[in-house]
Design a protein around this nucleic acid. Structure first.
Lengths: 186, 186
DNA sequence: ACCCGGATACTCCGTTTAGGACGGTTGACC
DNA sequence: GGTCAACCGTCCTAAACGGAGTATCCGGGT
């Protein structure tokens, strides 16, 4: 039980196991991919390395199948639950966004207008897709009260996507307006 | 001029230099910190290593002071501008969000309600602050037409922050409602 | 029962990034 | 010309990344 450094990844693992019960890495992968993955992405390979670290630290127990795939099943320990709750109580570090679309928009002044227009179209399509996916998820899971705390994050995703979609659509509108100033403006 | 791998970081550097003109790493750091940094964060040390790489690849020119700090000033080459424009035309990879607040919310079912309430309060405060900062930036720079393409990303930030703030505020309201069921329920 | 092919499940490892620590440089003020 | 605080640049270790590679399973054919 040496003291290990716990990062956000650690809490993703601890939390997922706390919420799902005993899990294998692959269970975590599938769980994370449709839930958390939407607002906290990271490579699946972490889900094999990190639980191991946490088990070393005594925050998880590890049980390995004798034969076959030699799958390891992890369960949370009292110490792990404690660490998780302590983190929940801690002050949060600020959110980070990495949006290549906005990055391109920021630099779009160096290119021609058709590059800008293509970017806007693309981003509108992307955000419409994401929005549709979230809406589908909402219809599928949104009404199950046993998931309520988890499902509520979906509402945050919906709000964000709607905001961003609105932003890009407004940009498209302004761009269209600018390119035919004849009829509406004097 | 070997072929180097160009990642988003590379385009941050190329784009910033294209937009600002010749710059030192420190110039870039200060520029990025108040602009891009809001939707594409990364460590400042990259801004010393990356331009070097790009210079090797012939996308930037490098000129170094003889004495003192031995500052290196970089300028973009025609090849660099070309690479930047090609990227602007490419399809964008999807946006990524990393929000510790949402992560905690997702796992909050394992803890008591007061942890949840504290989280909600904290997040409301955080988003109010960010929103206020963006509004200030908007008043400060939003009216300068020479920055228009760059400043427009600020509107995206405002839209997102407003959406997220609304989300958390609604959560607070629902929570308050649930904890005093006396008047409305039963 | 046995083999085969494709889908699934899992791990490993070389590369890249994170981001803080550290050390040198400068200019303002004494 | 000395001192100090702010400024600027580099380096280093741990962690994250992400894809390549391997093992396992399952269903269908013989």
């Amino acid at each position: 039980m040496s003291t290990v450094r716990l990062g956000p990844t650690s809490y993703v693992v601890l939390g997922s196991i706390a919420v799902r019960g005993p899990s294998t890495s692959y269970d975590l992968k599938r769980f994370v991919e449709v839930t958390l993955g939407n607002f906290w992405s990271f490579p699946h390979s972490q889900l094999y390395a990190e639980p191991d670290r946490l088990a070393q630290a005594g925050l998880l127990t590890e049980e390995r199948e004798a034969g076959g795939r030699r799958r390891r099943t992890y369960a949370i320990t009292p110490g792990g639950r404690e660490a998780l709750e302590a983190w929940l109580r801690d002050a949060s570090s600020p959110a980070e966004l990495r949006d290549p679309g906005l990055l391109k928009l920021f630099f779009s002044e160096v290119a021609d207008d058709d590059v800008f227009d293509a970017l806007v179209d693309e981003q509108i399509a992307v955000h419409r897709d994401t929005l549709a996916r979230y809406e589908w998820l909402g219809r599928r899971y949104g009404t199950r009260p046993e998931y309520s705390r988890r499902v509520v994050t979906l509402r945050a995703g919906l709000a964000m996507e709607r905001a961003l979609l609105g932003f890009w659509e407004q940009l498209a509108e302004e761009s269209a307006q600018a390119s035919r100033p004849s009829e509406s403006r004097r």
